[in-house]
Amino acid sequence: MDKDGAEVTAMAMTEAKVVEFPVSEAQAVSDERLLCALRNVAAGNLDALDEIWRLCADDFYGLALWSTGSRADAEDAVQEVFVRLVRTAGRVASARCPRAYLLAMVRRAALDARRRRRDVALDDPAALVGPAGDPAARLDENRVSSLVARLAPKLREAVFLRHFAELTFADAARVMGVPTFTAASRYRLALRRLRDWMGVER
């Protein structure tokens, strides 16, 4: 989860509420750069699309791939979002969380692709995760991918949005169009299942 070595978010759930701590400084800077790029695109400067790509492409592709399970559909979804982006950049820039708004666009495009195909089976489970830093993890890469593929699509989305896209539960919930508690529950349920399947102690 931690791309820059700093703890990004922490979460504590009580029976009464979901408590979320603020995102990291690096994430805030990234969001600020994204906002500038979106405003530039809205003003007609298409070179800013490169900056948006650098900031978001991996998250876009990852979410689309975890949602559709198909690399071809995921690529189509990402392309579709960039096409829509040049026409709606101004609206996206005025959103409360532009990154979440863009991820919602990706999710919708991915859902459209999934509906067209009517087959949610993942065509290449090995592509769902990659090793990050620890060479020992490479041994389990295929196993983890196949376990992630066993999760229901809505649970996979919750894990991706929270774990890899590093959204808060509130923003992840907006992306998925569900209440915050539902997003948190899906995330916790998905991790619990992965732990159980992997035999990881809690």
Binding site: M1, L46, L49, D50, W53, A57, D58, D59, F60, Y61, G62, L65, W66, R71, E75, V78, Q79, F82, V83, L85, V86, A127, L128, V129, G130, P131, A132, G133, D134, A136, A137, E141, V144, V159, F160, H163, F164, A165, L191, L194, R195, M198, V200, E201, R202
Partner: peptide, 24 residues
Amino acid sequence: HDPLLGFRAPLAPDGLRERALAAA
């Protein structure tokens, strides 16, 4: 105890950037 610790999300493949930005 995070089961996904040590893993990262898949990266956007080569070639998709040119294709998506050209379409945009």
